[in-house]
């Protein structure tokens, strides 16, 4: 932490707070409250997915006297999921482009990349819906066996996270289009970008641990 003499006290509206979110005022960390909030939330979310992934790893091959039906791993279509994973990863690239363009005040490009990111995320979700449907048709329901419960819960929670991200991206697109968000609030897009990248990274872990490792 900076010593007292180094602190700029010329603007003592100390601690940028929710009610003045259009002004960049000094905070102790140098990061805005909103950004620290997102980092803290993502830290918490790591543990959520950590617990869900551990649960899946523990339960995926378990059998009991009443076990029947295929396990999730029996039905994986690796090429298909690889493609949808690639689509989701590419959406991180477009998200970066959206953040960069609003920081350069290129609002039209920002809108384009926001919408592209949301569209790529939607393709991923559509792929997940297709995957769930085909698994169900092949006899793997949520209650079929222990690995199916664990699989649908883990990937379902990730899907909900992606869907919330899409809602946020579309909302941002509306607000940027309506002019409520200009280059001075580029950080809002940046923070949503943090969330989006996090959700992508979690998918890399899930894809590697759940789909690829036998």
């Amino acid at each position: 932490m900076a010593d007292i003499d180094e602190i700029d006290t010329s603007n003592l509206a100390y601690g940028r707070t929710e009610w003045d979110d259009h002004h960049h005022l000094p905070t102790n960390t140098g990061l805005t409250n909103e950004k620290v909030t997102m980092w803290a939330f993502l830290g918490s979310d790591c543990l959520l997915f950590g617990a869900l992934i551990s649960t899946y790893l523990l339960l995926r091959n378990r059998v009991g006297p009443a076990t029947s039906g295929p396990t999730a791993a029996d039905l994986f279509d690796i090429p298909f999921t690889s493609v949808s994973s690639f689509v989701l990863l590419m959406s991180s690239l477009t998200m970066v482009l959206a953040v960069t363009s609003i920081q350069r005040a290129e609002m039209d490009r920002c809108k384009l990349w926001l919408l592209t990111t949301a569209a790529l995320g939607s393709i991923f979700i559509a792929g997940q819906v297709y995957e769930f449907t085909s698994f169900y048709r092949e006899g793997l329901g949520f209650t079929t066996n222990i690995s199916s419960s664990a699989f649908y819960t883990l990937t379902g929670f990730h899907g909900v996270h992606v869907s919330l991200g899409i809602v946020m991206l579309v909302t941002m697109w509306v607000l940027v289009s309506g002019g409520q968000i200009g280059p001075e609030r580029a950080e809002t897009i940046e923070i949503i970008g943090l969330y989006w990248h996090f959700v992508d990274i979690v998918w890399i872990v899930i894809f590697a641990v759940v789909y690829l490792i036998p």
Binding site: R62, V63, G64, A66, T67, F142, I146, S148, S149
Partner: peptide, 17 residues
């Protein structure tokens, strides 16, 4: 609520989870 099997011992659940 949804009849999942996380703690269903007949399906091989582990109470230690």
């Amino acid at each position: 609520t949804f009849d999942a099997n996380f703690f269903n011992v007949a399906m091989g659940a582990d109470p230690l989870l």
